[in-house]
């Protein structure tokens, strides 16, 4: 038996919008810890890890660990039928091949049940080791989205370099090149507007902008994005989900031949 009630149902809607274009189908895992997902894109270049902790739900019942294979496009279609203020409850049972999404209006005067078929998905679960990163950049998520969009109109790849001076985003394409530098900038009144750079060592890595632009679909979930870089590791682009957990996108770098 599975019953997860989320007062702020819009969070789940936003999560789906953030990942459905990157990953078409995935197993959602439900355990005492929370509702989670780990999936790779079809090219196996990027990986998304989602965690919504059990404490963040208004009601969380998960009698035993359950994995639900879901087509994310279909789930997104169903969640789009929930109103922006609706409370969403996810219901499932062992041994059935469906999951039910229940939408309740704030006033409790409209209750909808959407039943969706589950599917068998044979997915690989990868172990993500804890790592020390050479540089960690925290910046406004809207600023990062703007940079990725702007650079995506010029080139296909972005070189992200962190030095004492700041974080530099560089691209080159047929029409020319672009270079954007963001310096550390702390705002006491509005910490979410700050750009904070923690650097142990300078680092410079190249990534496909197509993926970065896909990650920025999570911008609505958090005002701040954290970008963790190390020369021997995939970049981690993390959006915290208020008091509930996170979406982390991992992207393998492009390396000079």
């Amino acid at each position: 038996m599975l019953e997860l009630r989320l007062i702020q149902g819009s969070l789940l809607k936003k999560v789906l919008e953030a990942i459905k274009d990157l990953v078409t189908e995935a197993n959602f895992d439900c355990s005492a810890t929370g509702f989670s997902l780990q999936a790779m894109d079809s090219s196996h270049v990027a990986l998304v890890a989602l965690l919504l902790r059990s404490e963040g739900f208004d009601h969380y019942r998960c009698d035993r660990n359950l994995s639900m294979g879901i087509n994310l496009n279909n789930m997104s279609k169903m969640l789009r039928c929930a109103g922006p203020e609706d409370i969403i409850t996810i219901k499932g049972d062992d041994g059935t091949d469906t999951v039910t999404f229940m939408f309740e209006s704030q006033k409790q005067d409209k209750i909808s049940d959407f039943e969706m078929k589950l599917m068998d998905i044979d997915s690989e679960h990868l172990g993500i080791p804890d790592a020390e990163y050479q540089a960690i950049v925290r910046m406004p998520s809207a600023e990062f989205a703007r940079i990725c969009k702007d650079l995506g109109s010029i080139g296909d790849t972005v070189v992200i370099s962190v030095t004492k001076e700041g974080v530099k985003f560089f691209t080159r394409g047929d029409v020319g090149s672009a270079n954007i530098v963001c310096r550390q900038n702390t705002s006491v009144d509005k910490p979410e507007d700050s750009t904070v750079i923690e650097m142990n060592e300078p680092v410079s890595l190249t990534f496909a902008l197509r993926y970065m632009n896909s990650f920025t679909k999570a911008t609505t979930l958090s005002e701040v994005v954290t970008i963790s870089l190390s020369s021997e590791l995939p970049v981690v682009v993390e959006y915290k989900i208020a008091e509930m957990g996170y979406i982390r996108f991992y992207l393998a770098p492009k390396i000079e031949d």
Partner: peptide, 14 residues
């Protein structure tokens, strides 16, 4: 030229 690596190059199978 740059080569795109797969994520599995870095993270092992659980």
């Amino acid at each position: 030229d740059t080569r795109q690596f797969e994520i599995k190059t870095y993270f092992s199978k659980k």
